[in-house]
Amino acid sequence: MSSHKDNEVHKSNKRSRKTIRIIAIVVGICLVGFAILLATRKPVSMQSVASPLINRTAPQILGTSLDGKKVSLASYRGQFVLVNFFASWCTPCQDEEKALVQFANSNQGVSVLGVVFDDLNSSAAGFLHRYGATYQAVSDAKGQIALSYGVSQPPQTYLISPSGVVLTEIIGPVNLPSLDQLITIAKSRGL
């Protein structure tokens, strides 16, 4: 009697052990996959995703400049435009402003158009004046221009081709050498 029972129990245990092993292997495979997924990810700070606006027609910019004139991006057709979103309170904007002013004055056939991001017009104007900037800057009181360009955090800069297409998005401060390079490449491609 008992030997028969033991036999059955033994068989059953053997089978259940097999089941557990199969499950453990399946879970293990999932674990390996999960670990590989995690191991191959880069930190968010090192990731960059291209703006969906690139190679699309630039959203229109219609507004009033800080000195009260009507400004339209469409009126810049036929030349490269660097659209720069900035604020007086943003530290990296302060870092890039010198380079930006230099670039705007270097006369490479590129116009710079500033767009005020979440700032008082007076502070923004003061900020530009402090760095001797002479280019136009548009007030964007409701943030709608920034929204149409997908700006999250100033400074953010867009290079727009003479035909009105967004060529590049630069997140964070710009610097002179890379701007020069960018323009050269854009021009050489006949954009």
Partner: peptide, 22 residues
């Protein structure tokens, strides 16, 4: 990540090893 992997992997192996008794 390696530590996480080793901890889970080792536990899985132990569970599989002792499976029948569990």
């Amino acid at each position: 990540l390696v530590f996480f992997f080793v901890a889970v992997g080792a536990s899985l192996a132990l569970i599989a090893w002792r499976g029948d008794g569990l």
